[in-house]
Structure formats: C-alpha cells, structure tokens
Amino acid sequence: MKSRRTVLASAAVLAALGVLTACGTGDPAAEVKPEGKEGPGLNLGPDQKRIRSDKDEAAAAKLPEAVRKRGTLVVGVSSGEFPPLNFHATDDKTVIGVETDLATLVADALGLELDLQSASWENLFVGLDSGKYDAAFSNVTVTEERKDKYDFATYRLDDLAFEAKKGSGWTVKGPEDVSGKRIAVGSGTNQEKILVDWSKENEKAGRKGVDIKYFQTPTDYYLALQSGRIDGYLGPNPSVAYHVASAGQTETVGKFSGAGAGLQGKIAAATKKDSGLVEAYAAALDHVIANGSYAKVLERWNLSTEAVEKSEINPPGLPRVKG
C-alpha cells in the first residue's frame, strides 16, 4: 500500500522519533489520540465534519455592502504547520485546525462562504494592507503597535508556554530562569519580543542573556530539542500542549500570558483598520459564543481553557516596544 503522511508536518507527532500515537480502526493517520486522553482522538483527515453555525442577520447587516454582495469572506491563515492552530490534514492539502474552524463559524454567522487562503506570517499582514484578505485568523495577538494599522475582534486568550525535554528539572517563572539558555522561537512573533526583552533584562541585571535560536520549521526546532542542541522552545500554548500530549517526550515548564506580566493577552481576528469589518466580526463571534458552536470548537481541539465570554474590539494589547 502506498505510504501516506502519518505525522503532522510541524512535528507535533514525530514518527521519526517513534512518538506517533494513533487510535481507531480506519486509516491510522486520520486520528491521533493524545497520550492520556479519553475518547476517539482528533480527526486529522480531510473530511472534517466541521461544527457549523446559523446566520445572524444583525451581524451580517454590519458588513460593508461590497462584501455582502460578493458573498465570500476571504480569510488568510499562516501557511506553517502549527497544530492544533492550523495545519494540513492527511491529504497534505486541506487546512484544518481551531483557527480554520473559528473562521468557518464567523463566515457562517455572517452568511458568507469562507474563502481560506494560506500565506507566510509576513504576507498575512501584506495581504491585509492591500485588501487581499478581509481578515487574518492565525493566532494573531493584539498589540498596541498593531492597533495603529489593524482592527481586532478577540476570540481566544493568548497564552504562551516553554517546552523542554521530559525530566529536564527546569521551571520558567521569569527572565532569570532563561539566563544563558538556548531557546528556539519563531521570528517576528510576540514570543520573540518577550524573549528578547527578557534577555535584555538579564543582561542589565548582570546575568547572561538568552541564546535565541531560529529555525525554518517546527520540525527543525523539535529535532534540535530532542538532540540537545537547544534547551527549550517558546511558542503558543495550544501548540506546546498538543505536542506534549501527543509526543510524550517533552513537558511544559512554564506558562504565562502572551502579553507579558500584568496583562492577559488576547488572540483576535485582524482586519485592515477602518475597513468597516471589525464590528461585524465581533457580532458574529458573540453570536457563535451564545449559540454554543464556539465552545464545541474549542472543546474539539482541547482549548476550552482559552475561551472568552465575548468578543472585544481593540482591547488593551501588548505594550509598544520601547526605544
């Protein structure tokens, strides 16, 4: 039988290291059961049977007329592989994950057909600037700097986590705990900013800074973690939690708000500032929260702890970078 992809390209499950855990009686690649979890596991096949919502006429009425006439909601998502946020199904084509599912709910509530398009992280914002995308659903954190150019409608709490090899004996509570450590982080992300700030804080206090490492793909940094070339990885809590549960070879050694100390970070649908779309997104999100479909999506991806009670438009975000 022709071989099919049996691991997530992000190395959430690394078959090369023998950490794939599957269940079910069908295609073993179609479901992954995180270690210690009960139930049928996660559906990783192209037929997602996504949770859907009814239309909210009041939310749809808030859309610009041009979008209503077009009948589609063009949403950009990151082309990277970051389960359970967004990644490819076992057919290597269909984009799946919590971000895709939530974008689907918003499109449903607005009475629009979802037109999902993948792009690199940088090009997501280029696409928003040019009007190519109506929104980005890609684990985008609200920041004060981003609010200069974009409007935001929140839909999840933003938590980050440090991941290390199991049994590391390492706990991260603050900057001093990463002094001198080799930490992998995604370029251009809020977690990079926090790590850079922590490194500067350590140096100012006379401690060693952080040896920040960058890799092209999640597969690369997980292989580096397993081989001991890095001490840890700082990334979105959903991705870390998913990998820890699925692989069974690493552990979460620290967790905190993506906005840093004193402020709970928020993940939001991003849209071009003054595009006239953000109020419609917030109303649609409030509708799917109220009808229960939102909670079902988060439960499906084991992210219920990151639920919000209502969507906020442009809430306080990650502080500006100080010169």
Rank of each mutant, 00 (worst) to 15 (best):
L8R: 04
N202A: 07
S53E: 09
T90E: 03
V95R: 00
K132N: 02
T104H: 03
C23K: 13
A284W: 02
K173R: 14
G262A: 09
A59M: 14
T6L: 09
G167D: 04
P46R: 03
A12K: 01
L277D: 12
D148I: 05
R146N: 05
K322N: 11
I183V: 15
G111R: 11
H88C: 03
D177P: 02
D134Q: 06
Y214T: 15
E176F: 06
E299D: 14
C23D: 08
A259E: 10
T217L: 03
F82W: 02
D108H: 08
L225Y: 09
A268R: 02
G39N: 10
G323P: 15
P218T: 12
V32K: 07
N43Y: 05
V278W: 07
A290L: 07
F87L: 00
G80K: 02
G317P: 05
V74A: 02
K272C: 02
W170T: 15
I183L: 12
G169D: 03
E279H: 05
E99P: 00
T6N: 06
H243T: 11
I194P: 08
K255T: 09
W121E: 00
K310G: 06
L44Q: 05
A16F: 11
A58C: 03
A61I: 10
Q249N: 07
K204Y: 07
A280C: 15
I230S: 11
Y221C: 09
V196R: 15
S311I: 12
A205V: 12
D220P: 02
A103Y: 00
P319F: 13
D101K: 00
I230W: 13
I212P: 00
E31A: 04
S10W: 03
I230F: 13
